[in-house]
């Protein structure tokens, strides 16, 4: 057993877990944060993407113990109360989801993509960046549209803040 202390969605948590516990299992089973999904358990589908210290990570590919001391953000922690994150709002506005299973991972990956590329990101880059996230329903078109719209909006917001 190993003791793991980390911050999840702004809250400090400490738990004793089996050494082999994956971060996704820690989030889903130990903490009951079931918004993060397991689609493939082979690091391909991206349904389990969360942020670890601000960077998108496939949480099925990381041990909980490796996240010791880190700040983890999951889909449950993205909105500010009732105020949706712009990427969440864009997925809803642009019909970027159907069954919703890949959606939390898509959104968490998209937030990181926009952070790294900025508001001017083009469609080709978005499609390339989303290679690690698989969706079986939508055909990606509206996901890409949602990410692009959210990116453009983040530029507007940054300008407004200046």
């Amino acid at each position: 057993m190993v003791s793991v202390s980390l911050t999840v969605n702004g809250k400090a948590v400490t738990r004793e877990v089996e050494d082999r516990t994956l971060l996704v299992g820690f989030l889903r089973e130990t903490l009951g944060l079931t918004g993060t999904h397991v689609g493939c358990d082979t690091s391909q589908c991206g349904a389990c993407v969360v942020h670890v210290d601000g960077v998108a990570v496939k949480s099925c590919t990381m041990l909980a113990a490796q996240a010791d001391g880190c700040a983890v953000l999951t889909i449950e922690g993205l909105a500010q109360g009732d105020q949706l994150h712009p990427v969440q709002a864009a997925f809803r506005e642009h019909h970027g989801l159907q069954c919703g299973f890949c959606t939390p991972g898509m959104i968490m990956a998209a937030v990181d993509i926009i952070r790294r590329h900025g508001p001017g990101i083009d469609e080709t880059t978005i499609r390339h960046e989303l290679e690690g996230n698989i969706c079986r329903c939508t055909g990606y078109h509206n996901i890409v549209k949602a990410v692009k719209a959210a990116a453009e909006q983040s530029g507007g917001m940054a300008e407004a803040a200046e």
Binding site: I75, E76, R92, F101, T103
Partner: peptide
């Protein structure tokens, strides 16, 4: 149905 899916509450 989308609000619960985009907030991880599905």
């Amino acid at each position: 149905e989308d609000k619960r899916f985009i907030t991880g509450k599905g």
